[in-house]
């Protein structure tokens, strides 16, 4: 029989570790935005095949089946993105939905990055950056919950990116990110470092 010994020293240690970090509404919005986006881009069959790959019984035969299935999934999801683009996207996943089908292959290794900006008085906000050719119409942001922060998700390949927000027509740096020093278009911008998933 193991007796659990919790004395004063262990109590103090546990209390020191129990301090809660403060609530972070912007982090919450980022998580929700990312969850929505990933669901929009992940095909359920891909998850099943990913599970196969992790099993010890993985073999050449299953690898061949996986390769074939990947081709099929790529074709199906490409069509799905194309269909989404022709609809009327109104969520934070718009950046993904706006991807042309032809770009799906090129973006396969891109990472979904949630963007959040607290600009309550703004009427239109979009994300611009080297990942969308600084096109102010490519990635419009949506108000979270009607009157909350602005959110959107961009797809960016691993590496260093420069971006900004277009707030009512004015280029604005992200207050939560490091400033870019190599801006050559006459406004402030921020740096985004994307790591491999």
């Amino acid at each position: 029989m193991i007796v659990e010994e919790r004395d004063e020293l262990i109590d103090r240690a546990a209390r020191a570790l129990a301090a809660l970090p403060p609530a972070d509404p912007l982090a919450v919005m980022q998580i929700v935005s990312l969850a929505r986006t990933r669901r929009g881009t992940r095909h359920p069959l891909a998850a099943r095949f990913a599970g196969w790959m992790r099993t010890p019984s993985f073999s050449l035969a299953s690898a061949t089946m996986f390769a074939a299935a990947t081709l099929v999934i790529g074709f199906v999801s490409g069509n799905a993105v194309e269909r989404a683009a022709s609809g009327s996207p109104a969520s934070a996943t718009r950046a993904v939905e706006l991807m042309p089908a032809a770009d799906v292959g090129a973006a396969a290794r891109a990472v979904a990055v949630p963007m959040v900006l607290d600009a309550r008085s703004a009427t239109t906000v979009s994300v611009v950056g080297d990942f969308n050719n600084w096109d102010a119409t490519a990635t419009p942001m949506q108000r979270f919950g009607g009157d909350g922060p602005w959110t959107a998700t961009v797809l960016a390949k691993p590496g260093r990116h420069v971006y900004a927000f277009m707030v009512d027509g004015v280029l604005t740096a992200d207050p939560r990110a490091p400033k870019a020093r190599d801006v050559d278009y006459g406004g402030e911008a921020s740096v985004l470092m994307v790591t491999k998933p």
């Binding site: 809660l20 970090p21 609530a23 972070d24 982090a27 919450v28 998580i31 929700v32 969850a35």
Partner: peptide, 22 residues
Amino acid sequence: DEKAFIEIVEFYYPRCLRFARN
């Protein structure tokens, strides 16, 4: 219900971050 998911993230975020940091 998306609002319910937001409530969950709001409620558990500090605890989850504490556990992951530790």
